[in-house]
Amino acid sequence: MTTVDRALGRPRAFAPVGLTVVRRHPLIAVLAVMVLVFQLATGSFLDASNLSGIATDAATLAIVAVPLALLVISGYLDLSVGSTLALGGLVAGWLAGQGQSPVVAVLGALAAGAAVGAVNGVLCCYLGLSAFIVTLGMLTAVRGLAQQLFPLPLSGFGSGFAWLGGSRIAGVAAPVVIAGLVLVAGALFLALTPGGRHVFAIGVNREAAHLSGINIRRTPFALFVVTGVAAALAGAIKASVLDSAVAGTSGAGFELTVLTAVLLGGVALTGGSGSVLGVLLGVLFLGSLQNGLTLLNVPTFWQQMAQGVALVAGAALAYFAPRTR
């Protein structure tokens, strides 16, 4: 999780471990202050029901943010996740509405996401096209495809499918459990598998990685596919929670929210550095910000503005921090 920070070789502080983590992830401090402010201002921010709501909202964000972060660390980018999310929700909802079992419905959505990810991956990794351009194009193209396939809003997916978004496992909402699994898997992948090393290596220096005998196409390709799958899964969860999916609006703007969370979490857009802990913090920060401002009845426009300011401020913080340290 903190491999990169370790790799950066910052001198061991004599401070307690907690303080070191804060130094590596200043977002923790910002998050804590924000939570405190919201609690004082609303009095109900830290209520169990509200926290559970934040977690459920943040879950879909986290599920996509983790694979996207890995993709960014390896030097790529996926802007198409918002449309893939819509497609996944529509496919899953449609299959469920046809009377298919929830498992088939979800698998169908994952297959659709994998297909989108594979197209992205082939174009970017094997044909060497710019990921920004390819996935920007796919953002529009997949949205168009979804509208073509499902011109009418879908709803009424049945109680079986509602289980995905609504059930609780040991008292925790299913989406939150899934998000937790994704976070753990992402962290373990980065820290404990050869593939994790390769992701960093490719992101830091593609040519050197190539000349070290690493397959510089296969790993990012796999990450594109996984990102597509994750986006579709998030779409299925959202469709289940809302019991509706709309081709034109589901997941609109989601790609930028996810990217904001990833970048706030300290993943460098230039590749080569980042951590899953950072991504978790980024996701929690955005979720809490939105929730707290809603509780305070701040209009949506101001919420959006706060999100944007947070991103730029985070970038500025990361840029100036090393000099003051």
Binding site: V4, R6, A7, L8, G9, R197, F200, A201, V204, N205, E207, A208, A209, L211, S212, G213, I214, G272, S273
Partner: peptide, 18 residues
């Protein structure tokens, strides 16, 4: 710089990558 080193990765990662 261009073809060999991963400057931000650890010495161990650099020496052992393959």
């Amino acid at each position: 710089r261009r073809q060999g080193l991963f400057p931000t990765l650890s010495a161990q990662d650099n020496a052992l990558l393959p």
